[in-house]
């Protein structure tokens, strides 16, 4: 038995499936009429095709349905996913600025600190020029004065202040510049400046919003599937 050309083989095979145009089908019919070998081949292929189609369809050995564990269901990303992604990135950036900024602020703030120390004597003079007015003010607040002493002791225990004289109270209640020169070298930099606190708050708010939305999304997804 000789094998036909691939072209004729393809034509015969396609004719079995009704994939030939009328023209091609007519051409093939004339070919088959002239070549008994090709006609026999056509019968063979048709028989093979029918055998394959007569194969019994086997039933599946068991049901292939899925359960959630097999499907490993994951809640879909919320619609705000891209926004939340940006929010998280922004929150991270703000955190970096908030705490990383502390390394840069002292350098930037150093001249200001020196300015404050330079202005300190002038401030002292200003206090000295108006003792009566200040003292009077303290006298008016006399009941509070005794309480000021322990507070002052707590604030700077190394200083011994026997009595809460108006001058002493004024010195203790005076703004930090009077204490700044001595304590600046001992104490660390201030905890957070207002703008740092603002950035920190913003970053925490953004991160919390992102986490909250994700949590709500997951809970809603679980509740939906539990109902089912």
């Amino acid at each position: 038995m000789t094998n036909p050309s691939l072209r004729n083989l393809k034509r015969i095979s396609a004719s079995l499936d009704g994939q030939l145009s009328r023209v091609e089908a007519a051409r093939l019919a004339s070919l088959l009429a002239a070549d008994l070998g090709l006609a026999g081949l056509r019968d063979d292929l048709e028989h093979v095709r029918s055998l394959l189609r007569r194969l019994p369809m086997r039933r599946a050995p068991h049901n292939f349905t899925l359960h959630p564990g097999m499907a490993r269901l994951r809640p879909p990303l919320p619609r705000l996913a891209p926004v939340l992604g940006y929010a998280s990135a922004l929150a991270a950036l703000l955190l970096v600025f908030t705490f990383g900024g502390r390394f840069f602020i002292p350098l930037a703030a150093a001249p200001a600190a020196y300015d404050l120390t330079a202005a300190e004597p002038a401030a002292g003079e200003a206090f000295a020029e108006e003792p009566v007015q200040e003292a009077g003010g303290l006298d008016n607040a006399a009941p509070a004065a005794p309480q000021a002493t322990p507070v002052a002791e707590d604030a700077s225990p190394e200083r011994s202040i026997p009595t809460a004289t108006p001058e002493a109270v004024m010195a203790l209640q005076a703004p930090p510049p009077s204490v700044g020169v001595e304590e600046k070298s001992l104490e660390p930099a201030p905890v957070l400046s207002p703008w740092q606190a603002g950035l920190l708050s913003a970053s925490i708010a953004l991160a919390a919003a992102a986490a909250l939305l994700r949590l709500v999304n997951i809970l809603a997804f679980r509740a939906r599937h539990r109902r089912k």
């Binding site: 691939l6 083989l9 393809k10 095979s13 396609a14 499936d17 063979d44 292929l45 028989h47 093979v48």
Partner: peptide
């Protein structure tokens, strides 16, 4: 078409 024709021939 080509694969199917050749596959049928081989099966025969």
């Amino acid at each position: 078409k080509s694969r199917l024709a050749r596959a049928r021939l081989r099966l025969r």
